[in-house]
Design a protein around this nucleic acid. Structure first.
Lengths: 294, 294
DNA sequence: AGTCAGGTATACAAATATGCATGAAATGGC
DNA sequence: GCCATTTCATGCATATTTGTATACCTGACT
């Protein structure tokens, strides 16, 4: 094997990758926890070493040259390999101390996780836990999180997933709202009510297209991507919102809408990357979450 | 994109890759042009950063741990990407100065190339030329050479190849040998002569299996992987050898065996990696070689 | 037009990594 | 069994890289 061709500075390749993807040296520096001059020098050194101009310096920002574009694919693939290294290494690591990154919806993070985290802290005081509270489905492949709590079946390959249980969700509204607008007696009456939606209204509506609920876009005058904000809006009497029973029951000012109707099934899945499941640390948190969430 | 997972030191990954492949820190240091303490510290730092033990230190040499084996594949793929970066960069580079690495058989290198190199030197004085004289088919993919002169059609993908011409090869022997053993008059008489072979006798014989020459393994008492050594052996009268006409004719003490027989066809191919063919420097040498060898 | 935000390039001090020299341990050959 | 050789680990002077502070540029908005 001839190693000459790979003996350029690999950190410079990393600098190029992140700079190209982030769009500027400064952004790349922030992403990598380095400084802008360092990234600038690394990229310049790589250009020198390869004998290729990667970026056109136009004062304000950098734009990739043709040669830079040609190279970017290969640097990306280097980055993907680096990502796998980090992933597999975390899995192989049998260190019990360290950080575990958990991704969950914001409502789960705010109302379900806190007491569980308390338990986890006493079980494994050496482990730092980072919560990614987002309703976007995080990408476990790209290591945005080590463990994800989800309400849809994880379909990506290379994932270890466990269905913990089926939770129930219902429509809720504040007593003040129901007092003002009246309590609907049948699902048909819902069409005259105001709902608080998640994300884009059309995307959210698709969930209800399978049911026989008469909901249209005009019912969703308020929409947010944040479950917590939506819940606060509902608590303020601004409309009807869907919420897990176990969370809603903690709020006495909130009342079930159509209490006789069947609740919606909401599965609770726990997922991690297959490689990570061999790690003592991840395994411990995964199993404990499974136990407490069940 | 989350960059955290790729922000470990990529040069340490390189250190791990080369160390694992070369089998020792010292060998890796030689390969990379660094020193053994440096490689040792880089590998140790990577183990620290990933929280994984990569090698079992058994005093003399290092052996990969299970975790190390798990990671090696991914580091290899990182190395392959790095290799492609270097390859594409060389192709994109429009610098005329630099080094070009040419691979050719040792006889070609010794008897055909020298006057051509003289020409190249005057055409492009800024280019350094490195000759890899070997009869092993060098791997252009792995960048063992930039340009290869071959006698078989290059079949690997991603290669740009040009058939320069069909050269002729014949059996030759020294006059002293032919005087001593007698000049064979028909191909049938060859079976009583001694031949000098290349590489493993069986491998070499396969080339003649398609012809009707009565050669067997016992005819090849002398074998070498070096064309130059073989030729010297033949010049010393030790046997019959196959050689390109254009080379053999420079040696008046050597004489064609069975001069009426048809010579063998030996194609001369010039090959380079497709990516490299866009480089001014490589292109210049490639085209010049094609011109002079034709 | 002027200001401001956000970007890149450069000078210099501090932190970091590298190479050299050397010691210790283990393998292979005599 | 011993010696020669090869390999990994460590201390220290040096070389390199990094970060801080700053100057300078560009494009957007008032």
């Amino acid at each position: 094997m001839k190693w000459q061709s790979i003996s350029f500075d690999w950190n410079q390749a990393r600098a190029f990758l992140v700079t190209a993807q982030e769009g500027s040296l400064s952004a790349a520096a922030r992403a990598l926890g380095l400084t802008q001059p360092t990234l600038g020098r690394q990229v310049a050194a790589l250009e020198e070493a390869l004998g290729v101009t990667l970026f056109e310096r136009t004062g304000r920002s950098l734009i990739l040259t043709k040669a830079g574009k040609e190279l970017l694919d290969h640097v990306k693939s280097m980055g993907e390999a680096a990502n796998r290294i980090s992933l597999v290494a975390s899995g192989q690591s049998q260190e019990i101390d360290g950080t575990v990154c958990i991704s969950a919806s914001d409502t789960m993070s705010a109302y379900i996780l806190p007491p569980i985290l308390q338990e986890l802290r006493s079980i494994a005081p050496g482990i730092s836990i980072e919560i990614i509270a987002t309703n976007a489905v995080s990408n476990l492949q790209q290591r945005e999180a080590d463990i994800a709590i989800r309400h849809v079946r994880p379909e990506q390959p290379d994932l270890t997933a466990r269905l913990l249980r089926e939770s129930k969700a219902r429509f809720y509204a504040s007593k003040s709202y129901l007092h003002r607008k009246g309590r609907p007696q049948s699902s048909n009456e819902l069409k005259h009510h105001e709902f608080i939606g998640f994300e884009q209204p059309d995307k959210f509506l698709r969930h209800f297209s399978e049911t026989d609920l008469p909901l249209e876009e005009k019912n969703f005058k308020l929409t947010t991507q944040s479950g917590l904000v939506g819940w606060q809006l509902a608590r303020s009497g601004l409309g009807i919102i869907i919420m897990l029973e176990e969370i809603a029951e903690k709020f006495p000012e909130m009342e079930q809408v159509l209490p006789e109707a069947e609740p919606f099934d909401v599965p609770i899945w726990l997922a991690t990357h297959r490689e990570l499941h061999t790690s003592k640390r991840i395994r411990l948190i995964f199993d404990s979450l499974a136990k407490f969430l069940k």
